[in-house]
Simulated scan of single mutants.
Amino acid sequence: MATIKSLNKWANARSYYIIDIIRIALGVVLFIKGVQFINDFNLLSELFTPLEKIFGGMLLIHLVIPAHLIGGLLLVFGLLTRWAVIVQIPLLIGAVLINITGEMVTSNLILASVTLLLTIFFLFFGSGKHSVDYYLKMQK
């Protein structure tokens, strides 16, 4: 707990608008990706064909969409940022692995890799000073 408090103090002392804009853009990208998966569910199910034989493979397919939608919205507002990012990291690792082991689409690989790196950054950095988390913390 002390580590998280020290990370929050460090992040709040160095909170710049550009980092908030990047956090909001990351949330928008995740939300849009969730909407794309809703519109083209066949694409998502094709990506997960190797996991169909695994127990819970269909459950994973149905968890990706709400995780992207809800996680994207939470990141946009800066609410529960670290929790939203923790949920996204395994999905993004899977996206990178699917792009590497399956059909290689370089634009998807670059998008998944950059998104993964940004989520890891926000796992440590937090939501920053211009977020709902910071506002709620200051209200106490």
Rank of each mutant, 00 (worst) to 15 (best):
A112Y: 01
D20K: 10
G34N: 04
I54A: 13
S45M: 14
I4K: 13
G57Q: 08
A84M: 04
G94P: 03
A95F: 04
Y17T: 11
P66W: 01
L63A: 11
D133I: 10
L74R: 00
N39L: 13
L74K: 01
L116W: 06
K33F: 14
W10A: 14
V105W: 03
I32R: 03
I4S: 11
A112P: 05
G94H: 04
S15K: 07
F77L: 13
E52N: 14
M1C: 09
A11W: 05
G56I: 09
E46F: 06
S6I: 08
F122I: 03
P90W: 06
A11Y: 07
F125M: 13
P66E: 02
Q139P: 01
L118N: 10
L60V: 05
V64F: 11
S131R: 02
L51A: 15
I98P: 00
A95E: 00
I18N: 07
T106W: 13
I4P: 08
M104I: 08
V105R: 09
L111C: 04
M1F: 12
I38K: 01
L80W: 09
N12P: 00
S107D: 12
Q88M: 14
Q139A: 15
I89K: 07
G71F: 03
K33G: 09
G34C: 09
D40E: 10
R14D: 04
K53H: 14
S45G: 06
L79P: 00
I120L: 14
V35P: 01
R14I: 05
A84Q: 05
I61E: 14
Y16G: 07
F77T: 07
N12F: 06
T119F: 07
K137N: 14
